[in-house]
Design a protein around this nucleic acid. Structure first.
Length: 463
DNA sequence: TCGGCTATCACCTTTGAAACGT
DNA sequence: AACGTTTCAAAGGTGATAGCCG
């Protein structure tokens, strides 16, 4: 595990005193985020997770669900997720493995999904796992629903951000921490390529129960289209692991030899052991191209990382160009200790704004009396043009009363969207040169660090 | 010709309101 | 009247499939 942090304010002027971590700022450390269902994620990751993206938007499965600890119970936090390209390539599924198919397409509008409970006190986030179930992925660059826009056949991984902020407006002045989990990386696809992934999805996603072999699957469509039924049967056989397709001779030979062919079920404890020892990836290409390194095999070390810095930045968020304060010596103590969760603990204290309950304009989403005293219920706030964020459809009115994410909104003349140049979604042009030195982090090695600079954490980082 | 995308399908779960019982 | 449980229909999510498109 590595910890990358940069406490240096990266904006030229001081933030408003009401929002800035001023003299009364205090240290806040040991924020820990653990991934729920890590074994499920691993089982997908070892095969090569694929996420369907559709025009109307498709949920992720597995969906992002994390546990949080170390938050200040009374302080308000905002949770966000965005998707970051894994590399600068487009891929294709060829002969049972992913291969590089060329340069990545121009990055689509970067959207950040705001957890609908945001903002909420730390106690709220810590009392139960935080689910991003309703996060949806789309390939529609003109999407108006706030779904996260991705390119098909490209690789991404989610980043989780936690920001101590009383409201969305003050996010820009708050310290945030970023967490990633390597096993959550995935390839965006419009149709599943790897039948193993299909099988895993069917076996674990309750909505796909109808496709399970033990169910009525085989009679589905059987009387409608015999040919289709035959194909379906054939597919079922393949998915059962009886076909050779489960163990193709050339199926990622170099990286998949030890794959557990009984992946159809949620990994049992003994299977997990196997997984731990044999962490393979179908990404033969990534080795060939040195795009990224393999996750540490045979170890529970979580090579996730976190970063934190003050926003806004004078330039785009530069998560990979921040100062490295030294690698954390070890993963969280809970890792592999029975919790079965991936986790990352912020091992260094960080600066946070002091919760200002007096001036808080946020509303509480806690049911019942808050242990932190009375909560103010502010009126609707207009965040138009403030963030380019997506929100769950269950977003509370008043927290964000608008679809503020619309990248093409006329009311959002942000540089990120207003500078289309050669490619539709160019990197911000205002990057400074102060941070161009590569920073190795959490085991990933990006061949072209500069490419990362075009992926701001938040769209509003261009403020 | 082929790979990728999309509309549509049937099956399933989830969700919330209505009905009912205590 | 209030509360808890059950029932049921609508909404929405799922992968499979066929056909379209570049």
């Amino acid at each position: 595990m590595q910890s990358i942090r940069d406490l240096k304010p990266n904006f030229s002027g001081p933030p408003p005193s009401s929002m800035a971590p001023g003299p009364d700022a205090y240290l806040q450390g040991n924020i820990r985020m653990t991934l729920e269902d890590p074994e499920l994620w691993k089982s997908f990751h070892e095969i090569g997770t694929e996420m369907i993206i559709t025009k109307p938007g498709r949920r992720m499965f597995p969906h992002c669900k994390v546990n949080l600890s170390g938050l200040i119970p009374c302080a308000k936090y905002i949770l966000l997720v965005d998707m970051v390209p894994e590399d600068g390539f487009r891929y294709k599924w060829n002969k049972e493995k992913w291969e590089v198919a060329g340069k990545a397409e121009p990055q689509p509008p970067c959207r950040t999904y705001l957890h609908p409970d945001s903002p909420a006190p730390g106690s709220h986030w810590m009392k139960q796992p935080v689910s991003f179930l309703k996060l949806k992925l789309t390939n529609n660059t003109l999407d108006q629903h706030g779904h996260i826009i991705l390119h098909s056949m490209h690789r991404y991984h989610p980043r989780f951000h936690i920001v101590q902020a009383d409201d969305l407006f003050s996010v820009r002045w708050s310290v945030f921490q970023t967490f990633t989990f390597p096993e959550t990386s995935f390839t965006a696809v419009t149709a599943y390529q790897n039948t193993k992934i299909t099988k895993l999805k069917i076996n674990h996603n309750p909505f796909a129960k109808g496709f399970r072999d033990e169910g009525s699957t085989k009679k589905r469509r059987a009387n409608k289209n015999p040919t289709a039924a035959e194909k379906r049967l054939k597919t079922s056989e393949m998915l059962n692991g009886d076909s050779e397709e489960d163990s193709p001779p050339d199926f990622c030979q170099s990286s998949f030899e030890g794959y557990n062919r009984d992946e159809g079920d949620l990994p049992k404890s003994k299977e997990v052991d196997t997984v731990k020892d044999e962490r393979y990836s179908p990404w033969g290409a990534e080795r060939e191209h040195g795009v990224r390194t393999e996750s540490p095999a045979g170890t529970d070390t979580r090579d996730m990382y976190n970063t934190e810095q003050l926003v806004p930045a004078p330039s785009s968020y530069q998560p990979y160009r921040v100062h490295e304060y030294g690698k954390s010596p070890s993963p969280s103590s809970s890792i592999g200790s029975g919790s079965g969760r991936s986790s990352f603990e912020s091992r260094v204290s960080d600066v946070a704004t002091v919760p200002d309950h007096e001036s808080s304009r946020t509303r509480t989403h806690e049911i019942g009396p808050s242990p932190c005293g009375p909560q103010h219920l502010p009126g609707p706030q207009d965040y138009s043009g403030v963030l380019n964020m997506t929100m769950g459809q269950t977003s509370k009115p008043g927290v964000i009363g608008h679809h503020i994410y619309s990248p093409y909104s006329a009311e959002q003349p942000l540089g990120q969207w207003s500078n289309p140049s050669p490619n539709q979604y160019p990197p911000p042009h205002h990057l400074t040169t102060d941070y161009t030195s590569p920073a190795v982090h959490h085991g990933y090695h990006h061949g072209n660090v500069a490419e990362w600079s075009q992926y701001p954490l938040f769209s509003y980082s261009c403020w």
